[in-house]
Design a protein around this nucleic acid. Sequence first.
RNA 1: GUGGCCUUAGUGUAGUGGUUAGCACAAGAGUUUGUGGAACUCUUAGCGGGAGUUCGAAUCUCCUAGGUCACCCCA
Length: 422
Amino acid sequence: MARKPKFQRAKGMHDILPEEQKYYQRIYDVVSNIADFYGFGKIDTPVVEEIELFSKGIGLATDIVKKQMYSLRTRGGDLLGLRPEWTAPVVRAYIENGMQNLPQPLKLWYFGPCYRYERPQSGRYRQFWQFGFEVFGEQNSVIDAQIIQIFYNILQDLKLKNLTIEVNSIGDNNCRPYYKKLLTNYFRNRESSLCVSCKKRLKENVLRILDCKEEKCQPIKAEAPQTLDHLCDECHSHFKEVLEFLDEIEIPYSLNPYLVRGLDYYTKTVFEVFAEGNNALAGGGRYDKLVKVLGGKETPACGAAAGIERIISLMKSQEVKFPKEQETQIFLAQLGSLAKRKSLKLLGDFRKAKIMVAESFGRDSLKAQLNRADKIKARYTLILGQKEALENVVIIRDMSNGKQEIVKIDKVIGEMRKKLKK
RNA sequence: GUGGCCUUAGUGUAGUGGUUAGCACAAGAGUUUGUGGAACUCUUAGCGGGAGUUCGAAUCUCCUAGGUCACCCCA
């Protein structure tokens, strides 16, 4: 019957089909390995949080909060939002679970979906997966470098090529207000030459003018005071140390004085990782004020997140190879009802012996079953027909040359184990 | 939020006012009865949805929903 799909996926959402799962799994494996090595503990938080957590944490003026958040009111009247990113929820969990009282620095990592209501385009979905790392309670610059190193290592382990890392420092509460004032003055004097959106930015978030791509803004940007020239002593030496660490661990980076990032909570170090294309694969930085802003005690912190779909699309375009899961090498074919019963048992025995065996019990013709065995590229097919079932034997067919031998049914597991070792 | 392009079986496509809507791959069944990879046969399966123009719409118009790309923003 022809049936049109009544439902389709919601805009910007995608199914992750079996073919696609291996990419998520691969990334998960690499990320969790590195997390273990560096002593990060995994955390999951609910996909919904009080909406205020995000407006406070990410910043009221940001696009993410202003227009990209999925929000809902519960029957009880609570105003909740689907997480658009992980940092604020992780900070909330850090505070709420009293993790300040654990040995610091406290290191957490995560892997899961986020939601933003945006027009979908290349590398952008409304539900997208992120993994990330956050370190709490350590203000030393070595952490900033280590976070960058971790992301670089992960992407390298995934065999991605042409990675570039851009870093910058946007100062802290000591020097940023002054710098912002300086910048505002500078741009205000040249307001008439700025593009439309930059005129808006001038009022709302001056820093963002710096990463405007509009051509007419470029010459003005080029002359603008740079954040690096106006850092306070502390921020300056912190950033210098970060760069020294990066040199030491031989991470290729470039300074991007225009890198400011769209979330309000960053202080000092910010960085983004790129490969091909304009979309950042990962981004992050230090956020020394956020824990306090969200109600905890003053706690320095640093972290970053990466977009999993973007990584996957790069893995595909760079044709990255990765270890495949073990393919099933044995197929079990059966013929007749007695044989089918014995096959079911035999299959279970193979499972207990931890040997992968495929079957197609729904098919009754031997031909169709062998066809199936061929499709999955089985090395051996075990044939259990009516005659064999009565005699308690099994035919082992070598699929590469068609040679067959007969073994006792209770010897077949041992026999196959031997054969697979060859 | 703005703009461009796109939408025909599961997938990839042909078809520009009248066709039984064609092809390829995939899937399923079979080609004399218990043996795969080839070939052949058959089967399943489609004009995203709605309205309009017209004697007649996959084809023209509008709306809508998705996809895609760019801006914006971000992972």
